[in-house]
């Protein structure tokens, strides 16, 4: 019996509702496929653009141990990009097409990476806050409906939580150090705090995709819920460090059992999304030039593989 689209959609949703995963060869609504290509590739792009601000500090890391840890961290991000591009490719799009969307500005990546990493303390703050905020989203995604994405997330989450601990440890070392180091740590917190809160995306009432995303188990919590969870989790850590939260409106709300925090500068958020952040141009330029300068290398590898294949067939 031939099922019509409505039946297929009903069956598809029932599968999701029962907690089973959708695999690349399963039937899926076109919108589900497109949404996943958009979200997974945006995530992959964030990983590889995210290599840049931290990559800037590898050659200047203050000790051999920190250098090796940072190199390994940035390399992990490249690895995450690799699994995520592969997960997106299972939906019928090539990596080159995805790069093209990044380079043309059609695809977005996490705006946080458009902020500059100006001191060594930023390596601590980025690992601790940015990876920390990313994990909140990613832990949720380990239970998402699309199988390859959920499985990629399980592996990524393990590494990210390791990165977060390393970031916090960098901050802790600075905070237990000299006055200069403490000031460096506070300055980094001041600069990364608000952009980290913005990482969860617009307020719920302005978030356009939430309802559909929840139906498909791409989202299990709303942006505001995750943001609050992040604030509640991070404030005690800031206290351990002995730093000040750069928010004069922050206070514990006894009745909610949560922290109330000050207003986010959404104008800044939308400006950075629109391309006006401090490093948008540099980040995209760096990605484009790596891709363009690498074209002859990829062509050579392809030509060589074809020659080898032809030789094998001739034998």
């Amino acid at each position: 019996m031939q099922l019509n689209t409505e039946d297929l959609e009903r069956e598809f949703q029932a599968k999701i509702d029962s907690g089973r995963s959708i695999e690349p060869k399963d039937w899926m609504p076109e919108k589900y496929r497109k949404t996943h290509i958009r979200q997974i590739s945006q995530h992959a792009h964030s990983e590889i653009v995210g290599m840049l601000p931290e990559g800037n500090w590898i050659t200047r890391a203050p000790s051999l141990k920190r250098k090796v840890t940072l190199l390994a961290k940035v390399q992990d991000e490249g690895g995450h990009g690799l699994y995520l591009y592969s997960a997106a490719e299972t939906l019928g799009i090539t990596r080159d097409e995805l790069y093209e969307q990044l380079h043309s500005g059609k695809a977005k990546y996490s705006s946080i990476f458009n902020y500059p990493a100006v001191t060594w303390a930023d390596m601590g703050a980025v690992g601790w806050l940015v990876d920390g905020a990313a994990i909140m989203n990613q832990v949720m995604l380990t239970r998402t409906s699309f199988g390859p994405y959920a499985r990629a997330m399980v592996r990524i989450c393990k590494e990210e939580s390791f990165h977060q601990r390393q970031g916090f440890e960098i901050m802790l070392t600075l905070c237990q150090g000299t006055e200069v180091q403490k000031r460096m740590a506070q300055d980094a917190l001041n600069r990364w705090w608000w952009p980290s809160l913005m990482m969860f995306g617009p307020k719920d009432e302005e978030s356009t995709h939430t309802e559909q995303a929840m139906k498909w188990r791409i989202k299990l919590k709303t942006n505001d819920e995750l943001r609050q969870q992040f604030v509640d989790q991070t404030i005690p850590q800031i206290k351990i460090l002995g730093l000040e939260v750069p928010d004069k409106d922050l206070k514990w709300n006894e009745s909610r059992g949560s922290y109330d925090f000050g207003a986010i500068n959404w104008e800044e958020f939308w400006n950075v999304v629109a391309g006006n952040g401090p490093c948008n141009k540099e980040r995209l330029e760096a990605r484009k030039s790596a891709f363009e300068n690498g074209a002859w290398v990829r062509d050579a590898a392809m030509a060589y593989a074809e020659k080898k294949e032809a030789l094998k067939e001739a034998v």
Partner: peptide, 27 residues
């Protein structure tokens, strides 16, 4: 290590970083 994040493909980027990591480990 200067090349990390700028390789001609993700695979070569990761491989060169690996070599760099090995060398620093030896150092």
């Amino acid at each position: 290590s200067e090349l990390c994040g700028h390789g001609p493909s993700l695979e070569t980027d990761i491989a060169l970083t690996n070599i760099s990591l090995d060398l620093f480990g030896q150092v």
